[in-house]
Amino acid sequence: MFEARLVQGALLKKILEAIKDLLTEASWDCAQGGIQLQAMDNSHVSLVSLTLRSDGFDKYRCDRNLTMGMNLASMTKIMKCCGNDEIITMKAQDEPDTVTFMFESKNGDKISEYEMKLMNLDQDHLGIPETDYACVIKMPSGEFARICRDLSQFGESMVIACSKNGIKFSTSGDIGTGNVKLAQTSSVDKEEEAVIIEMQEPVTLTFACKYLNNFAKATPLSPVVSLSLSPDVPLVVEYKIEDIGYVRYYLAPKIEDDDS
């Protein structure tokens, strides 16, 4: 028996919004400690890792570890039936073929239940090694989303260069070039609005804009995003979800032209 109740139902809706464009289907691994999701996009260049700790739920029960393969388009349809202020309860049997989503209105006078068929997904889990990144940048998530959106108009790929002076996002395309430089915030009034750079060595990497734009769809989950970069390893874009966990996106860097 698996049951997880989340009073902030909107949170699950936001999480789904953050991953549904990247992934078509995904396995939700439920265990005593919480729910985890790890999946690659169809092109296998990015990886989504989602963790929701059990203590973040208002009620959590998981008798046996189970994996629920879900079609995210179907799940999105169901989540659209859930009001933003409604309470979500996910339920499943021990060896489930279906998962039930129950939506309760705040005053409890409306309860909707949706049962969704599960899929058998044959997905490999990847082991992600602990890495000390050369640069870790914390910045307002809205700012990051804005930069990705603006720069993706010009080109398909974006160069992220991190140095002592700050961080530079740049792109070039048919119509010209664009770049945005962010300096480290000197006086921190609000941590959420600060740009903080922890740097061991300068890093310059190129990534596909389209993917970064998709990562930015997690912006409603957290006011702060953290970007971790090291030479020749995937970029990590992390959004902490308050009190419950995080969603992390890994994106492999683009191969430099002169390499090929």
């Binding site: 260049v45 990015s46 596909a208 804009c209 993917y211």
Partner: peptide, 16 residues
């Protein structure tokens, strides 16, 4: 998305 992925290494080459 698949089009945008061109030129990017597979993530599987980084994670085993």
């Amino acid at each position: 998305l698949a089009k945008a992925a061109k030129g990017t290494k597979s993530i599987m080459s980084f994670f085993s």
